[in-house]
């Protein structure tokens, strides 16, 4: 037991590397916020464009959403990080991470918002138009508020899953929590920095998970 504590909860080692991990927390939180804002906004715009029902545009949006949902983000991250410099486009590690993860979130968000739009009865669109509102007005004032409400629980879960992937940044040298923790682990020869890193992730994401759980129960209750 002592040996276990010494290995995984060594206080001196933890204290020494705490500043590094905290710096990593800053990077992770910043990236997560940027990814959520950009991804959800882009997904919402795509879903709204899809309501215009232009055949060629919808085809492109559906392809994008499918590819974004089918490809593992790490594959795209490696492709961008190692492939693009060969054709003269060099993006920094954090930039690649931001672009790839927000694009992935956008693909999922588009599908979630679109599912919200399609769950509204057609009659609402027609009734809105019949009272003299323009298509855009029906979209903004009638469809959107209802679709967004339906989208919130799945969107929170998806955003949580994707922001957790900021840990993939450690593979391409982004100085977020995991990479700070593994660096500290190899310098100190102790597993304690890994524990500290895991605790940092839990501190960020557990409130998020509990919030998602609360939202879900509220949502389920309303449906009954």
């Amino acid at each position: 037991m002592d040996r276990f504590l010494e290995t995984f909860f060594n206080a001196t080692v933890m204290a020494r590397y705490l500043p590094d991990i905290l710096h990593g927390v800053g990077v992770t939180v910043l990236l997560a916020v940027a990814i959520i804002l950009a991804g959800v906004a882009a997904g919402l715009v795509l879903a709204c464009l899809r309501t215009a029902r232009l055949r060629w545009l919808n085809f492109l949006i559906i392809c994008y959403a499918d590819v974004g949902r089918a490809l593992p983000p790490l594959v795209v991250i490696l492709l961008f990080y190692f492939g693009l410099p060969n054709i003269g486009i060099t993006l920094s590690g954090p930039m690649v991470l931001f672009v790839v993860l927000s694009a992935t979130l956008a693909a999922f968000a588009e599908e979630i918002f679109w599912a919200g739009f399609t769950s509204l009865p057609r009659g609402q669109w027609e009734a809105g138009r019949a009272t003299g509102l323009g298509s855009l007005q029906v979209l903004v004032w009638i469809a959107l508020p209802q679709a967004v409400r339906l989208a919130v629980p799945p969107l929170v879960n998806r955003a949580l899953a994707i922001t957790k992937m900021t840990a993939l940044g450690s593979v391409i040298g982004v100085s977020e929590i995991l990479s700070a923790a593994t660096t500290a682990q190899s310098f100190s020869g102790s597993a304690s920095p890994l524990t500290l890193g895991a605790l940092a992730y839990l501190a960020i994401f557990v409130p998020f998970v509990i919030f998602a759980r609360w939202l879900e129960s509220r949502f389920a209750w309303k449906k009954a």
Partner: peptide, 22 residues
């Protein structure tokens, strides 16, 4: 909730390079 909050890669690194320490 614990395993939903922990990124899978962190868990993987923990198992792969943390357990040998024990």
């Amino acid at each position: 909730d614990f395993f939903r909050a922990l990124p899978p890669l962190v868990l993987l690194i923990f198992v792969y390079s943390g357990l040998p320490f024990a």
